[in-house]
């Protein structure tokens, strides 16, 4: 079984570091290849093409409850694509997942964990609620992997 965990976000932009920080904590806690990525999410399509199970961890825009962990199965749930394909500079994770789904390259076992952020200022530290969510999510270790379909 090949599993891939992607912590997505810019480590220098406050709560956007949540994804990479969870990835760092997961390295020794999960039977999967763990990577940190930020920038152009379209490049990820090639990276997860061979994976049987995929875990994507990203920060989410503020919605009033910093540190809340949203769990999304992108094969069944639509991710918010507020600016989908609206800008050449803004191909985020949601667009990459949607495109991969259309192209048939999204692993059937995919789970997205989105930690609701609060402060995304350059150079800012993690918000306390987000820092706690990072620890809480990482503590789940291998349980983050989406289960294999029952035979």
């Amino acid at each position: 079984m090949t599993a891939l965990v992607v912590g997505f976000g810019n480590p220098d932009r406050g709560d956007d570091a949540a994804g990479p920080l969870v990835a760092r904590l997961l390295v020794d806690r999960i039977a999967a290849r763990v990577v940190e990525r930020h920038g152009d999410a379209l490049a990820l399509l090639d990276e997860w093409r061979e994976a049987e199970a995929l875990v994507l961890i990203d920060a989410a825009a503020p919605m009033g409850e910093p540190g809340r962990i949203h769990e999304i199965d992108p094969c069944t749930d639509e991710l918010p694509r507020q600016f989908a394909f609206g800008s050449t500079h803004a191909f985020g994770l949601a667009e990459a997942i949607a495109l991969s789904h259309r192209l048939g390259s999204l692993p059937a076992r995919t789970k997205v964990y989105a930690i609701e952020g609060e402060n995304f200022a350059p150079g800012a530290a993690l918000s306390p609620a987000v820092a706690a969510a990072v620890d809480r999510l990482a503590a789940r270790g291998g349980a983050l992997l989406p289960p294999a379909a029952e035979e």
């Binding site: 152009d40 379209l42 490049a43 090639d46 394909f85 949607a98 495109l99 259309r102 048939g104």
Partner: peptide
């Protein structure tokens, strides 16, 4: 409407384009 909608019918072209873009990057 957009590249995403186009991908459903022109998937092979979109895959090629993604590879070209990735190579440039």
């Amino acid at each position: 409407e957009d590249g995403l909608a186009m991908a459903a019918e022109h998937g092979e072209i979109v895959k090629r384009a993604l590879f070209v873009k990735k190579t440039g990057n």
